[in-house]
Design a protein around this nucleic acid. Structure first.
Lengths: 337, 337
DNA sequence: CTGAAAGCGCTTACAG
DNA sequence: CTGAAAGCGCTTACAG
């Protein structure tokens, strides 16, 4: 067995109380004692047991993070920021894959509760009432990432999806496009579906452009659905000059299907994506897209969570800044050659 | 405060020992008592405190996972498999980003030790002696993923990199290519660098093909380095008909630079990658590549680790099966039209 | 079938 | 400056 505080106390000829004191940098011991204790700790290779500490302190210095899919580019980008911030503040992070499954999410929450995590980051999913209730019972801080809570004062950090979509479409319009199609994500997704469509429609309206039913098709954010959506778009009236895709995966699907049909990008058709994953700069041509600062969002969310844990106060929500990354898939129609 | 075992014992008019027994499905109580206890647990919404349990059981039901970069496609693919398997066996996983930094790795190990994790998965990094020593002190099972240990009997699960590279090159040769260049990853990387180059050379030799110094260039696995490597390859004698890139990122870089130079793939040049990330099927044309079953590797590693934790025995290492995923970047030169 | 008690490895009043 | 003791929330012999 590894040595315990008792072992070092015995060896150093002091009480465990004093060992504990020097361990925690409290006051109440002579310099001589301190040196003696530190020396024996060193010699024995003693490391405090965080479990025992957690039991008494009611703090485990760990936070739980729930993702619908830990392997997605989205989740892993967030995770890096979260882990970074947690590490810098002496917290550990335990990840749970909810697999977008209600029962599993509840089970994860239960495990996290049993393990006494100090706080929870809930990512990319709507906070259903049953989740909220489970969270309430845990009596620990929670923060939402890329999601919003309607039922209560649980803070979130996310991009303004409506505004980001608006800006993407406005960008296209400013480049001279006035027939713009959109490939949306899931129609009823309250976070990344509805608001982005809303932004699209508002940008059109604000610039005096009509909304056309046949210009709007739906996918599920993924590549395959983007391919189907693009084929659909191609099969109807084909007079739009640009497409706004609500995810990079679907935008890249547009590139792919366009190539298959001999449609040149951006010469024949412009496209703008949404996410700015690493992939966006690797495709041909490099994709112009809306950047979501995932790392920063993760850092901010984790920072807020830790503040809440340590202060007991609720933090404000935060809108993370998005931006448009110009690469080579949008043609500027205002330039006449 | 949430109720403790004491609270339910009081309310149910039994001792905490009895509550503990029914909680753990031990024997030693009447059916009537069991029902009574279960009922009060239900009523009070009691959940056992895993920290208190961990203190006495010397088991936390959590494993630690170390990645050089949690946000990479590689790590997150592994993580999904690991989390899945852990979840199914009632373990939680805490992730640590070592950022490829020795001091940080050691610090992570220390934290994991203090938090009393039951086992550790160490991914994609060479097990330096100092890491090994820290691990020894922890006295808990360790398994390596996509890495190998030279110093001791710590098991690993990984693909046979040499063989996989060999197969990729042999595949090209079987398609009629006999002038094959390679873009390697880091020259001295003992895991994914050296062995893949070795496989390349062996495949050449076994098929009576000469190794040509100018056909072998080095990158660092990443996209940008692949671009540079490809430019380099283009600037020297340009008579190879195929390129084997030691990562998908670098293979995609080849696609990108080729497009820039008006080189058609696979008509003018064939390319095969290594990894089979999701991206590989999204690029144009879809990339033929070597598949590493990341999810399965994660599952297998986690399964082995849990076996080791629960049996106290060391598991055997495992070579995960690779395969070649044929898509559209390799031209078959044996077909004469 | 059931409970009192010791103990896991710590921290923290309390007393000196 | 220092230590004895209680206690965090459990499990597990031990005794009945």
């Amino acid at each position: 067995m590894n040595p315990t505080i008792k072992d070092v106390a015995n060896k150093a000829n002091v009480s465990i109380a004093t060992v504990s004191r020097v361990l925690n940098n409290l006051s109440g011991y002579s310099d001589k004692t301190k040196r003696k204790v530190l020396k024996t700790i060193e010699e024995m290779g003693y490391q405090p047991n965080a479990i025992a500490r957690g039991l008494i302190n009611k703090r485990t210095q760990t936070i739980g993070v729930l993702f619908p899919d830990v392997a997605s580019s989205f989740s892993s980008g967030l995770l890096r920021g979260i882990e970074e911030q947690a590490y810098n503040n002496n917290y550990s992070v335990v990840v749970c894959n909810t697999a977008d499954n209600g029962k599993r999410t509840l089970k994860c929450l239960q495990v996290l509760r049993e393990k006494q995590v100090d706080g929870i980051i809930f990512s990319s999913e709507v906070l259903k009432d049953e989740y909220y209730q489970a969270l309430e019972l845990m009596k620990i801080p929670v923060i939402l990432v890329s999601s919003e809570a309607y039922q209560a004062n649980v803070p979130y950090v996310k991009v303004d999806d409506r505004q980001a979509a608006y800006d993407a479409v406005a960008y296209l319009i400013n480049k001279g496009h006035n027939k713009i199609a959109m490939i949306s994500g899931n129609k009823n997704d309250p976070i990344a579906g509805v608001p982005r469509v809303k932004g699209y429609k508002e940008a059109l309206a604000d610039h005096g452009l009509p909304f056309r039913e046949e210009y709007l098709v739906y996918g599920d954010f993924r590549f395959d659905s983007g391919c189907r959506a693009m084929e659909e778009l191609l099969s109807t009236a084909r007079d739009y000059t640009a497409i706004f895709a609500a995810s990079d995966d679907m935008a890249i699907a547009v590139l792919s299907i366009a190539a298959k049909h001999g449609i040149w990008i951006p010469e024949d058709l412009s496209v703008i994506g949404y996410d700015n994953f690493k992939m966006a700069e690797m495709v041909i041509p490099p994709l112009t897209t809306v950047n979501q600062p995932l790392n920063e969002i993760g850092v901010a969310a984790c920072k807020k969570l830790i503040n809440m844990i340590e202060s007991g106060l609720i933090e404000d929500s935060m809108i993370a800044p998005h931006s448009i990354v110009e690469r080579q898939t949008v043609r500027d129609l205002t330039i006449h050659e």
